[in-house]
Each structure stands twice: as structure tokens, then as C-alpha cells.
Write a protein that binds this DNA or RNA. Structure first.
Lengths: 193, 193
DNA sequence: AGAGTTCAGTACCGAACGGTACTTATCTAA
DNA sequence: TTAGATAAGTACCGTTCGGTACTGAACTCT
């Protein structure tokens, strides 16, 4: 009922996500966001609420799209495969052929002014949650025997997360998929047998 | 000649560095910077030029101070000691007792608006330069025999840099020195014998 | 056809941004 | 003591920031 919206809300959100990805939360101005989204500010506010809520929606979309490898990797059959799928997923996600380099959850707001604190905290939680999921998966792996009983799931999870974060920074530095894959291989050399 | 400045320019720069460290380049406003520096905007402009040049000076200071471990680690006697000193230095630098968590060269401007592009590029160069220094040191290590002749210096350097970047993000996530040290130990497990 | 509802666009809000003229104060050199 | 030079402080510059009234336009339901 009422006038139907003239733009594709899904496409607009996808484009907003990419702007946040490339610019970070505070570096993305409403002018650029709405310009790339192809809508006016009023349409954006009507559809998403405000800038912060637009970012939250964009982050959700990021988790379900480019960062879906986080969840997918957990479903691999053994711990080594999980770790490898996680890191390779990170490589692909941080070097998309037609998109921004790096990781939205890292460069979205690593440091920020006070205005960005809420978003920064949101991203800290997001990143830490990914680590917890990995830790729980490795804990299960110890129970199931595909990690030695002496292995420390939390420690391994933190190491994999650290490598993934480092890959995100290296992607922002300009490294390509092939070079990042080498890093993954090197990181996996110390993995428990 | 002329009226002498009434503030300690070294102390002011130190404080500016910490603000940039905590807020990032674009997240640090002139109001907050000068407020923490204890001087007015005019004094800042007279002493440093503008915001970007202030950042460049702050980055120099960071390299000579908190990030001096980068240079110091290269002077260790063998490759393994270099790598270990580098990563342990990163842990200490990213978790200073009274300072901001993380690394200025990472969270200074990973993603930014167009206005911050110059600083972002500067930081990309800074980070890549560190990797090159490490690579050259490992190349020498191969020559000197404390790395196996089959070892790939560039690959090892990139891995260590990646781990250091990851540590910087983990520090921003709230991890403490003890937890980060565990990550260092885990990363070094795959180091060539 | 008319009423009610929702969307799009323009024009604008106060606040904060980085940066600067201009005045006043404090020093050195002659 | 005076002239020249530099610093500090105030008040302001134009621009951009995120966010919002308000006016029309486009739809559905009765």
C-alpha cells in the first residue's frame, strides 16, 4: 500500500557494503554512499534508518556473502581441513576480482573517533565471535581425535584468526591471491600432525 | 630570535602520536589533537605545517620509538632469533601498559576516504618496507647458512609480517601480551629447522 | 473518483571539519 | 630603547558532516 519504492533495496545494500568495505565506516560519507547506491539521502533514511543501521545491515550481508566462508569452513571433516578452508576462504574474500581489497570487519573501524565507537565495538565482537566458533570446532576435533589430545583449541583458533587478520592487512597492502596462498601454506607448516 | 615557543615540541608530538594511534588519521580531529597536545591550532600549524605533516612526523617518531623493534630485530644473530624478536617486539609494541592498543601503522589508515589517501599510501609503503627489510635479512641468513638453502626468504618474511599484522589486530581486539605471546610461539612452530 | 499511505526530491538544519587572518605578547640583536 | 622577529590566542573562513521538514508524486483500497 502506498507508493512502491523505485530502487532495488538488495542491490542498494550490496553497493553500500562495498563502499563501507573500501572506505571504512567513518571514511564512507553519506554523500558517497547514497551516490553509489543510486538513491537520495531521504530514501536511504526511510529504508535503513541511519548510517549506523545501514552499516549493521551491510555487515550482516557481508557475513552472509563474502564472509560466508567462516561458517562454511567449520563444516569441514577434520581440524586441518577446517583451518585450511578458513584461511583459503580469507584469501578469496580479501581479494575479490571486482571488489575492494581487504576485510570489511577489519578495516571497517579498527581505530575511530568517539562517534564510531559503537561500530568499532560491534566489529570487535564480530571478529572475536569468529574466533570462538573456531575454538569450539577445534575443541570438538580434540574430542573426535583428529587433533592430538595435548592440542590447545583456543590457542590454535587464535593463531588461525591472527593469520586471517594478517592476510586481510596484506590484501590491503596490495598482495594478490597467489602470494596470500603461499602465506597460508607457510602458516600451516606448524599444524599438529 | 623572536619569541620562544612555550611548549615542549617533543612532548606535543608524542601526544599527537598517541592520538593518531588510538583514533587513526582521519578519526583524529584537530580539536582533539591540539587539546591533548596542550596547544592551540595556530601553534600546531606554525610548528608542524598541517594535519598530514603532523601525522608524518608522528609516524617518524613511532618508527624511532615504539616500532624500533623492527630495526632492532634485524640485528639478531640468526634468522630464528630475528623472527622471534620481531614478533615479540610486535607484541610489546601493540600492548603498551599506558598507551593505545594495536599498531599505528595498521590502524592509522587501513581504509579511508579520498582525503586520507596520501596517508594510507604512506602507511602501505611503511608496512611493505618493513617486509622488504625482513626479506633481505632472511636472504642473508640463507647465505650464512642459518636458514636451509631451500628456504624462501620472501615467503618467510611475508609470513612473519602477516603474523605481526594479525597480532596488531588481535591487540586491538583486546588480547593481552600473554595471549599474544602464545600466538607467537604457535606461529614459530613451523619455522625451518 | 477520492481518501489514505508511502516514496522521492529539494532545500535546509546545526555542528564539526581542516585551515587561516589578525591582533597581542614575548623574545633577541643592535 | 627600539626595531625586527617569532609565538600565542581569538575569532573567523568556506566546506562537509549526518540528519530532517516539507512538498509532490505514485500507488492501493474503498
Amino acid at each position: 500500500m502506498g507508493r512502491p519504492r523505485e530502487f532495488d533495496i538488495d542491490q542498494a545494500l550490496e553497493r553500500a557494503m562495498r563502499v563501507f568495505w573500501a572506505r571504512g565506516y567513518e571514511g564512507a560519507s553519506l554523500a558517497e554512499l547514497t551516490g553509489v547506491m543510486g538513491i537520495t539521502k531521504t530514501s536511504m533514511y526511510a529504508a535503513f534508518g541511519n548510517k549506523e543501521q545501514l552499516f549493521r545491515k551491510a555487515l550482516e550481508r557481508y557475513g552472509a556473502g563474502p564472509a560466508a566462508y567462516v561458517t562454511r569452513a567449520l563444516e569441514e571433516s577434520d581440524a586441518r581441513a577446517v583451518a585450511l578452508a578458513f584461511l583459503c576462504g580469507a584469501v578469496c574474500a580479501t581479494t575479490p576480482p571486482g571488489g575492494p581489497s581487504g576485510c570489511l570487519t577489519v578495516q571497517g573501524a579498527l581505530a575511530s573517533s568517539d562517534e564510531g565507537r559503537a561500530v568499532r565495538d560491534l566489529l570487535v565482537d564480530w571478529r572475536n565471535a569468529a574466533g570462538v566458533h573456531l575454538e569450539e570446532r577445534f575443541r570438538r576435533a580434540v574430542d573426535e581425535g583428529d587433533l592430538p589430545s595435548g592440542a590447545d583449541p583456543r590457542r590454535l583458533a587464535r593463531f588461525i584468526m591472527t593469520t586471517a587478520f594478517g592476510i586481510a592487512v596484506q590484501a590491503a597492502n596490495g598482495l594478490g591471491p597467489a602470494e596470500l596462498e603461499e602465506i597460508v601454506d607457510t602458516a600451516m607448516l606448524g599444524w599438529p600432525a
